[in-house]
Amino acid sequence: MTPFLLLQALVLLGLIVTAVLIISFKDLLAAAIAFAAFSLLLSLEFYLLQAPDVAIAEAGIGAGLTTAIFIIAIRGTQRHEEKN
């Protein structure tokens, strides 16, 4: 196993872990930050697959703007998920 493949395997593992974290957090602000980490890892994976255009777009839109919109929405509503 070459170091390149090992790096890709680590990034993909991190993607799965952050994706599980997003749906398991009850604190919505923490979930938004986990989503930003997910987008950052996804953009790193795009870069490793030699698609720098998509990587820049993903880092800008996914990690930057979407997180900002989520945080503004949380600021206007409430921070914690309601218990059922």
Binding site: P52, D53, I56, A57, G60, I61, G64, L65, A68, I69, I71, I72
Partner: peptide, 20 residues
């Protein structure tokens, strides 16, 4: 690599940072 859409998104991220 990059272009209009990507660069515009990066600039908008800067303003979003300030807004948040």
């Amino acid at each position: 690599p990059g272009g209009g859409f990507q660069g515009g998104a990066v600039m908008a991220t800067g303003t979003a940072l300030l807004l948040v």
